[in-house]
Write a protein that binds this DNA or RNA. Structure first.
Lengths: 361, 361
DNA sequence: TTGTAAGCGTTATCAT
DNA sequence: ATGATAACGCTTACAA
């Protein structure tokens, strides 16, 4: 079934059918109705490749998971991001192509890049969770290919959507200080990820504003996994220096591991050590005590990335779009805000969308 | 840059360039070399849409996440499956399009279906985690469109890749019986998912073989989430009947919740109640006590689904391909096999690929 | 081994 | 408002 056949059956020309399909207003109501009827009868749908070839756009958005963050792909962060991206794409009648660099050393990377980007398989690309100085950025810029980063980029001339990592971290640490905590440790993410760096920066700033200096032995890098958080916490506990009375952890998964390590060390949370995490994903919020955390709007970030990309594709020489979404504190047991209770908290139900407001569940 | 221009620069015809690009052997070494040189110089890559239009294949595989399982998408099961799918696609120089039904009632569903399937946007589809009698199956069959289910289907005429859910469950319950447990409860997954049904069947069979009858109050359905497992366990504990001495849980996420509920109820695992989960995903294995579980090869399942689909696309009228991958037991603390230890276990490191062999970490 | 030429099913431009 | 007609960039018989 092709446009041509529909045209014949409806007694009009190919062009008219094309106009109907594409919602062009320059069609008489009579013709439109006849064509639509035939289309329905024949259950016709235009051929994607033919369309792309003629219109020079695929209506496909690429979602690239760089190799560097592939190991984190099992973290619920990515499903959340994907959901947001797909949702926005569905609304805009676009498709999503998932690009993952599955082997190291850039072998797959290069093949995928050539096939997908240079082969014009997609109209634009969203890069999930960028690492510092990812070479793909330079390559895309050079090729003049529309792209949006999830996670900010130091250069002023690239588009990105980010969450306020620094502000969120700052709020969390300031909150711990308000609880009277003075020796605040931090478990960061991988050092090559910008989000890690920003969260650390917020931690440092908050301490400095309170007249404290971050102590090197109290900052340990994890890898965003639960196990990484466990080991990082152990490392802090066994560092030989005076124990901290609080710890800010750069992801909920790591915070969950840290809680485990504290339990294994017979330390009470929040009595001995208060804990605040980062993410606010439902999946990782359930813990004993219930985790206080910095909530970031991941799905919204995905949606926003698509919106930005579509705009960039529409107006290729528009100035770079840079949007930072607010984070907010969700205060519960692990920081000492809520009393212990034997029932599960409904995390996420009372979240509000503001960077300064503090929600209590 | 087009084939035509490459041809001109290399002093050959369009066809020759096409042959070189597609690895056709009918090209003289001299010509091939010249063409390859020009292609490299110009950094040329064939236009995907033009290729698809002429060859009538897109080299795109659709990965469909039905709406019914969308809520489970945050479970690490899906990232694992996706990784397997993408990996196999990369190897075969195919792309993967992610299709999710993001709104209920089949609205998005229908739009996505028409656009992607009928618009020949993809050459075939992998359906992730099928529910009982998903209408999409009938539709794909009717359209004669190549597809593979992840998770078995009762009909003999559809292709699928599955894991041995029933056998895995059977092993787990039999193992609990071998530990001398007699009142074995089960927390199942959603009742409309075939995997849930199969795991329950394995549980029932194992009990029956041992001369026990499954007790209704000891079987509760969860939703595959941690919170669901928590509540299901609570329900079992408060059902009024004699407490079980073991519980088989249909997913590790739920098992993790169940462990929490047991801890909150001051019951000791495995002393008072032994627990075995299902999944074997690294992410959910970390717990106190370390979880014994049925390991299923999810990534491999994804890879295998792609292989089956590619074969089906190659030979459209081949008989349906049905492949069931083995599961195996990973025995650790929660069933009573390993002594308690304060350090984290390295889950997944010692896994073996056999349905009967029992691995101890 | 190489080239010629006819599609593939649309969109887009230009008349009418 | 409608219809010819020329792209779009490639694959694929078929011919040489």
């Amino acid at each position: 079934m092709t446009l041509e056949e529909i045209a014949r059956l409806a007694g009009v020309s190919r062009s008219t059918v094309s106009r109907v399909v594409n919602g062009d207003p320059r069609v008489s109501p009579a013709a439109r109705q006849r064509v639509e009827e035939v289309i329905r009868q024949q259950n016709f749908h235009p051929h994607a490749a033919a369309r792309s070839l003629a219109s020079r756009r695929t209506r496909i958005v690429g979602l690239l998971i760089p190799y560097a963050v592939g190991k984190l792909f099992r973290d619920p962060f990515f499903p959340a991001l994907i959901e947001g991206v797909v949702q926005a794409c569905n609304e805009a009648d676009h498709n999503v192509a998932l690009m993952m660099e599955t082997s190291e050393g850039g072998a797959t990377s290069d093949r995928v890049y050539r096939r997908v980007i240079r082969g014009r398989h997609v109209d634009g690309v969203i890069i999930a969770s960028s690492v510092v100085e990812d070479p793909i950025v330079a390559r895309l810029k050079e090729d003049g290919f529309p792209f949006v980063l999830v996670g900010r980029h130091p250069h002023h001339d690239v588009s990105f959507v980010d969450v306020d990592n620094r502000g969120g971290a700052h709020m969390a640490v300031t909150h711990l200080l308000a609880h009277g905590r003075r020796r605040i440790a931090m478990i960061t993410g991988p050092r090559n990820m910008i989000a890690s760096i920003d969260r650390y920066a917020g931690y440092v700033t908050a301490l400095q504003e309170a007249g404290h200096l971050p102590e090197p032995a109290l900052t340990v890098a994890g890898d965003f996994t639960r196990r990484g958080g466990y080991h990082a916490m152990q490392q802090i506990l066994s560092s030989g220096v005076e124990l901290p009375d609080a710890v800010f952890v750069a992801s909920d998964a790591m915070a969950s591991g840290a809680l485990q390590a504290l339990r294994d060390a017979s330390l009470r949370v929040p009595d001995d050590i208060a804990v605040i995490g980062f993410d606010g994903l439902e999946e990782t919020l359930v813990s004993r005590p219930v985790l206080s955390t910095v909530v970031q709007p991941i799905e919204e970030e995905g949606r926003e990335a698509v919106r930005a990309l579509l705009e960039l594709m529409e107006h290729p020489d528009r100035a770079p779009l840079q949007r930072v979404l607010p984070t907010h504190l969700l205060l519960r047991q692990s920081c000492g805000c809520e009393p212990e209770s034997p029932v599960h908290q409904k995390g996420g139900d009372s979240l509000v969308a503001s960077s300064v407001e503090v929600a209590t569940a």
